[in-house]
């Protein structure tokens, strides 16, 4: 079992829920992302999802689109993100998940990427545009490298499809709380509760819920249902709004602590 699985076990034993935070790597710089990750860990974040910026993020809303553009303008590459992970690993054992689109990985080379990601200390990957139908070409290498391949379940995913997804899942299952892009509308707790219940019946893997969660109240409600809550756009927006301020990291961490408290 990797760092992700162990983290969920540890949290489960303490009756805690996982707080997973998404950051776009390289926004505003890779050095800043590193500092943010280390500070977030101290603020109670259990798993970080590091976004690999892509030119055409079709599953992302305006906040993460803009962050990706800024990161790319700042010269962020997948190679640079892997170096960032290796840097973080020197001082931290926080589980790290890379989140992104397939083309940068494909251009890097699926096999080469998997080895490099493992060496850097990446624990899992979530590739938005690789549904089970197409995931094979990457998974032969990431599975071999012991990297968790985090599967997405959407509100539109039907029963039979869910079965297939669950069968092949590792690490945890990521339930997309809204029919939409990242950071869009506020999710409906009753709907999530029902859908997460369906997934529970099929798997023992932890279930995290993300897309559209932005405040402590939502996080609290969802933590009653799921094993983890993912906060993305809300954090990225705060980083952007406070980028010029010397207390940017403190502001972001204060927000994250507020969410963390809501989970306990």
């Amino acid at each position: 079992m990797g760092r992700i699985g162990k983290k969920f076990e540890e949290l489960r034993a303490n009756k805690e829920k996982a707080l997973i935070v998404y950051l776009t790597a390289g926004d505003p710089s890779l050095a800043a992302t590193r500092e943010l990750v280390l500070s977030l860990e101290k603020s109670g974040v259990n798993i970080v999802e590091i976004g690999v910026p892509f030119s055409d993020p079709t599953a992302d809303g305006p906040v993460i689109q803009a962050a990706s553009q800024r990161a790319l303008k700042a010269g962020t590459t997948l190679r640079g993100v892997l170096e960032l992970v290796a840097e973080i690993r020197r001082t931290s054992q926080i589980p790290i998940l890379l989140f992104g689109y397939f083309n940068p990985i494909f251009a890097y080379g699926a096999e080469k990427f998997s080895q490099a990601a493992k060496d850097a200390g990446v624990d899992g990957i979530l590739v938005v545009d690789l549904p089970p139908e197409e995931a094979g070409e990457l998974r032969i290498f990431t599975d071999a490298a012991g990297i968790d391949f985090i599967a997405l379940v959407a509100p539109t995913t039907g029963r039979d499809r869910l079965k297939t997804i669950v069968q092949d899942a590792t690490g945890f299952l990521y339930y997309i709380s809204i029919t939409g892009v990242t950071g869009a509308a506020a999710p409906k707790v009753e709907d999530i509760s029902r859908e997460v219940g369906k997934i529970r019946k099929m798997t023992k893997l932890p279930i995290a819920v993300g897309f559209g969660i932005s405040c402590a109240d939502q996080a609290r409600a969802i933590a009653r249902i799921a094993d983890g809550v993912v906060i993305g756009s809300a954090v990225v927006r705060r980083i952007d709004e406070n980028r010029a301020n010397s207390d940017c990291i403190q502001t972001v961490c204060a927000y994250v602590r507020e969410i963390k408290e809501a989970l306990s």
Partner: peptide, 23 residues
Amino acid sequence: QNGHFDVFGGRYAAETLMPALLE
């Protein structure tokens, strides 16, 4: 049957869209 023209094509789509594509 999965939409591949040799190595090209396919369905590299977000999970939210997959059921709609299959339908």
